[in-house]
Amino acid sequence: MLDLLNNFQLNSLMFLIPSLFMFCCGVYGFLTRRNMIAMLISLELMLNSVDMNFVVFNRFLCPGEMEGMFFTLFAIAIAAAETAVAIAIIINAYRIAKDIDVKDLTKMKF
């Protein structure tokens, strides 16, 4: 057991597969959830998995540079800004429609 722990090597796949799983969860959640906040959470999941991808690629493939890390920092800030705007819009929509279910936002179609 101790031997196994000593020889344990971090592998980029150990991070990439969870990250891809996170992204797929986000897509699934975005397509199936009907509550706008839940959809927003799914979107955050997708954006975070992208950030994780960048960090993992940077750490394992080009450890000498910091490009991926910097991209991640900016991406986190952008995701925060996106969420703020989206939440503001959802609150306004709630005030006028009294619900945050996307099924109610179907006045304009086809």
Binding site: F30, M36, M39, L40, L43, E82, V85, A86, I89, I90, N92, A93, A97, V102, L105, K107, M108
Partner: peptide, 8 residues
């Protein structure tokens, strides 16, 4: 409604 659709 348009804004929600656009931002999402």
């Amino acid at each position: 409604e348009a804004a929600v659709k656009y931002i999402l």
